[in-house]
Amino acid sequence: MGAPIVLVHGLRLSGSMWRPQVEWLRERGRTVVAPDLPGHGSRRGEVFSLGSAVDTVLSAVDGVGGRALLVGLSLGGFVSIAAAGAAPGRVAGLVAASCTAKPAQSLAQVYRIPALLMDRLPDRGAAVNERFHRLTLRDGAADAALDGGLAVEAATAVIDEISEMDALAALGAYPGPVWLINGSRDHFRIHEKKFFDVCVDGRLVNVPRAGHMVSLDQPENFSRIVADAADVVWVRERGLSDGGSSGQVEAGGS
Rank of each mutant, 00 (worst) to 15 (best):
V205I: 15
N182M: 13
A82W: 09
D62S: 07
C99I: 05
D36E: 08
S16K: 13
A155R: 10
G2F: 03
P103H: 03
L135K: 09
R26S: 06
K102Y: 01
V226D: 01
R209N: 11
S98D: 10
S215N: 14
L69R: 02
F196T: 13
A3Y: 01
L146Q: 00
I225N: 02
Y174L: 13
V200S: 10
P175T: 04
V91L: 04
Q21T: 01
P35L: 02
W24R: 10
N129K: 09
K102C: 04
A154I: 03
G76F: 01
L73E: 15
R30D: 08
R26P: 00
S246Q: 09
G243L: 05
S215H: 15
G253E: 00
S241K: 04
L25W: 08
P103S: 08
V152C: 14
V152K: 09
V71S: 03
A151K: 01
R185E: 14
M17E: 15
G125H: 10
S215F: 11
A151E: 03
P208L: 13
A92Y: 08
D62R: 07
Q109H: 14
D62V: 03
A230V: 12
G183Y: 01
D62F: 03
V22N: 07
G211W: 08
I225G: 02
A115F: 05
S246A: 13
A83M: 12
P208T: 11
A144F: 07
L25M: 14
V47A: 15
I190D: 02
V54H: 00
V57W: 04
A60F: 07
S246W: 07
W179I: 02
L107A: 12
L146D: 01
F48M: 10
V6C: 11
D160H: 04
A127H: 04
L117S: 05
L13T: 10
E46Q: 15
G45K: 11
C199N: 05
V54E: 07
D228I: 04
D242V: 05
V249E: 13
V64Y: 03
S16A: 14
V205W: 12
V198P: 05
R120A: 15
A141C: 08
A144T: 06
G253V: 10
P4E: 01
L116Q: 15
A230M: 06
L150W: 00
S14E: 05
A230D: 02
V95R: 04
H133N: 11
V54N: 03
D197R: 12
G244V: 11
R28S: 01
A60E: 11
Y111N: 08
V226C: 02
A87W: 00
G149I: 05
E192M: 15
A173W: 01
D186A: 09
Q109G: 05
V110Y: 01
E130M: 03
G85K: 01
E164W: 00
V57Y: 07
E23C: 00
G140P: 07
G29C: 06
A144K: 04
D186K: 02
G125S: 07
G66I: 07
A97K: 09
D166V: 03
I159W: 06
L116G: 14
G15S: 06
G65S: 09
C199I: 06
E192W: 10
S49K: 06
T31V: 15
H133L: 15
S80T: 10
N206V: 15
I162Q: 08
A83R: 14
R224P: 04
H191T: 00
I181M: 08
